[in-house]
Design a protein around this nucleic acid. Structure first.
Length: 563
RNA sequence: CGGGGCGUGGCGCAGCCUGGUAGCGCGCCUGCUUUGGGAGCAGGAGGUCCUCGGUUCGAAUCCGGGCGCCCCGACCA
């Protein structure tokens, strides 16, 4: 049993001035975390209990999935990272030891774990296996934000699977997938598994686990039976409002119509009857991207279509290759050889598009007939789209985990190979699987927070039962509360007892801030009836009072019914 | 990296424009009263005003450099 009179629980009536996100405000107010520097957070005792409960759940499910826990150094020789090329990552903390040796602080542990596997594994007989660690990771984030949500130092569970072939990797990936579902469900956080961008690592597949919440940094696209990061989401746009065909391109004067809105207004047509032209410079030079007028570019999808990162073209570059900014189009470009990409959502019907002359657009322009272009999927999904006829919703979410089929990127770079049955040397096939416990805590706080505090799910609440005696220390109420707490403690419940001298309001408010699922209050009135008042924190539901003579069965029932 | 904001007691803030005794609410300590929604009275402690330099008789306040923190965007293997 823990006593509030002895617990370092620095609750605050007001949130810190610089806290914006709900989870940031509430977790500081509830005395769970304190900031030490930008992106550097300490966990106070109650907060650490929550964090460790999440870690315990992760550990149980990892073990159940057959993964083996180990520990690896956070401080590592830079040389390892040079082998994989990851020493160039800006977020990597780099430093020297006293001898001048180049070191790094690990942001993940692929290099370290793969190095050992390379040293140890010789034969296919030793495969497959999955290792994991729950350790501090360091990242020199350009912008830490939202309290505990994006920090420079954080604990991460990282698992690494090692298989002899792709089928083995698929099996390991599936085992982790199953474990992840159990972990998030057990923690009580709302989550989605979404398709994610494999990015420059070009792996065979990747999924992110996203917890929807207001402070989320990513947007996810949801429809019945569908969930994807907007960075990869492919949805069906609402039908375009087409105009009467006129058979061939024809100039139309459009002074001062440099935006789609102005253009559509001027011509009295829907934005979807126009084409939006965006000029970017990618790995292979300047490219003109055409989308439906009411769509916008999704930068990650475009980067994938271009095969590398890109930047907006300058006005000079645009003028040299295409035409005057604001009136760009695929016909009569200054350099007719300019690559033109056409988004899949643009129909093979006539559209209005820039004429590459200031103040002039062309109407009646039809893809395929009037110009040629490579079809790509680069539009951003948006509300109003559908997937298989089901309307989509786009919500902010925070990434609480990811799984990735790495393949042989690390094993080849670090020489992790094995001899197969034929005595042939093969690279080990690898997968990696990360979870950020602090983000599970923070996103749960976002999802379960209200104006009074955080209604923690019972699986990760710092304590299960919060017993508050309302009288001052030594009073009959306080004595009865202490006895109740001791009884429940002996029955195996996790109990926090408010035995402080404070007033009733203070105790009740702190109980709501801390947010344990079941609150039992012993006051003068309830004590006269031999009872403690019971309230479920989630939803502030009043429950049947607990008998002080035989409290255990009712407490067990109340807790069983709590989320 | 671009843009914006902030730094005054543990927390939240005022004071700065127009230089001259460092202030308010909450919290904290002592005593008495109070005890079902952050209580009352009385007394008290606690601040190099982020830092360094400049201007001035005098700087929290004006000027310059630096550091720190937050927010928006970019970035996020």
């Amino acid at each position: 049993m823990h006593r509030l009179s002895q617990l370092l629980l620095p609750t605050e009536r007001q949130p810190p001035a610089d806290a914006e996100a709900l989870s940031h405000q509430l977790m500081v107010r509830a005395g769970l975390v304190r900031q030490l520097g930008s992106g550097l957070w300490s966990w106070m005792p109650a907060g650490w209990r929550i964090h460790q409960k999440v870690v315990d759940i992760i550990r149980e499910e990892m073990d159940a999935a057959g993964a083996q826990e180990l520990s690896l150094p956070v401080l590592q020789p830079r040389e390892l990272w040079e082998k994989t090329g990851r020493d160039q990552i800006h977020e990597l903390f780099k430093l020297e030891d006293r001898k001048g040796s180049e070191m790094v602080l690990a942001m993940t542990h692929e290099e370290a774990v793969t190095t050992h596997v390379a040293q140890i594994v010789k034969s296919y007989r030793e495969l497959p296996f999955t290792l994991y660690q729950v350790q501090t990771k360091e990242r020199d984030e350009p912008r830490p934000r939202a309290g505990i949500l994006r920090t420079r130092e954080f604990v991460m569970k990282d698992a690494y699977s090692f298989d002899r072939d792709d089928a083995g990797l698929d099996a390991s990936y599936e085992a982790q997938t199953a474990a992840y579902a159990k972990i998030y469900d057990r923690c009580g956080v709302r989550w989605y598994r979404v398709e994610s961008d494999v990015g420059m690592m070009g792996g065979a597949g990747a999924h992110e686990y996203m917890a929807p919440c207001a402070a989320g940094e990513d947007d996810i696209v949801l429809a019945e039976g569908y969930a994807a990061n907007v960075e990869v989401a492919t949805t069906t746009p609402s039908p375009a409002v087409v105009v009467e065909p006129i058979g061939a391109p024809e100039p139309v004067e459009t002074p001062d119509a440099k935006t789609i809105e102005r253009l559509a207004e001027l011509l009295g047509i829907d934005a979807s009857a126009t084409m939006k032209a965006v000029a970017v410079v990618g790995p292979e030079g300047l490219v003109l991207v055409l989308l439906r007028g009411d769509d916008t570019v999704q930068e990650t999808k475009l980067a994938n279509a271009l095969g590398g990162t890109h930047r907006p073209a300058t006005e000079e570059e645009i003028a040299a290759a295409i035409g005057p900014a604001g009136y760009l189009g695929p016909i009569e470009m200054a350099d007719p050889g300019t690559t033109v990409l056409l988004d899949l959502a643009v129909g093979d019907t006539e559209h209005v598009v820039g004429a590459n002359k200031a103040g002039v657009h062309l109407r009646g322009v039809q893809p395929g007939r009037d110009f040629q272009a490579r079809r790509v999927d680069v539009r951003a999904a948006k509300a109003g789209d559908t997937v298989d006829g089901k309307p989509v919703e786009i919500v902010p979410a925070i990434e609480v985990g990811n799984i990735f089929k790495l393949g042989t990127k690390y094993t080849e770079a670090l020489g992790a190979t094995f001899l197969d049955e034929d005595g042939k040397r093969q690279p080990i096939i690898m997968g990696c699987y990360g979870i950020g416990p602090a983000r599970i805590v923070a996103s749960t706080a976002e999802q379960c927070g209200d104006e009074r505090g955080i209604a923690w799910p019972k699986a990760i609440a710092p304590w299960q039962v919060h017993v508050a005696g309302l009288g001052k220390p030594g009073s009959p109420e306080a004595e009865a509360a202490a006895k109740l707490a001791a009884t429940l403690d002996q029955a195996g419940f996790e109990v926090i007892l408010d035995d402080r001298a404070g007033g009733a309001g203070e105790k009740l408010t702190d109980a709501e801030l801390l947010g344990c699922p079941l609150r039992l209050v012993v006051g003068r009135r309830t004590l006269e009836r031999g009872e403690a008042e019971a309230q479920r924190r989630r939803g502030s539901v009043e429950l049947d009072p607990i008998s002080l003579d035989d409290p255990v069965p009712a407490v067990r029932a109340h807790l069983a019914a709590a989320p």
